[in-house]
């Protein structure tokens, strides 16, 4: 293998941290994005809808 072991380790350590922070920010932004609020609220409640058939009878609720 041409790549030196220490450079692989250095890459793993530094970019791993950067990646961790980026992901945490991304997920938080996604979860709190105002535009998503309605979808999440609907998803949260939709499983409690009394419906035992496939199809979209409940669309537009």
């Amino acid at each position: 293998m041409d790549i030196d072991h220490y450079s692989v380790v250095a890459f793993a350590k530094s970019w791993g941290l950067f990646y961790l922070i980026a992901l945490a920010v991304g997920v938080t932004v996604y979860a709190f994005w105002p535009g998503n609020r309605k979808r999440f609220d609907r998803a949260k409640k939709s499983i409690l809808d009394k419906d035992d058939r496939p199809g979209g009878e409940n669309d537009g609720n």
Partner: peptide, 19 residues
């Protein structure tokens, strides 16, 4: 998202024979 952790941990072990 899931693969990266594994890669970071395992990949360097394949160059480890140098050490």
């Amino acid at each position: 998202v899931a693969s990266i952790g594994g890669l970071v941990e395992i990949a360097p072990l394949f160059t480890i024979h140098e050490t």
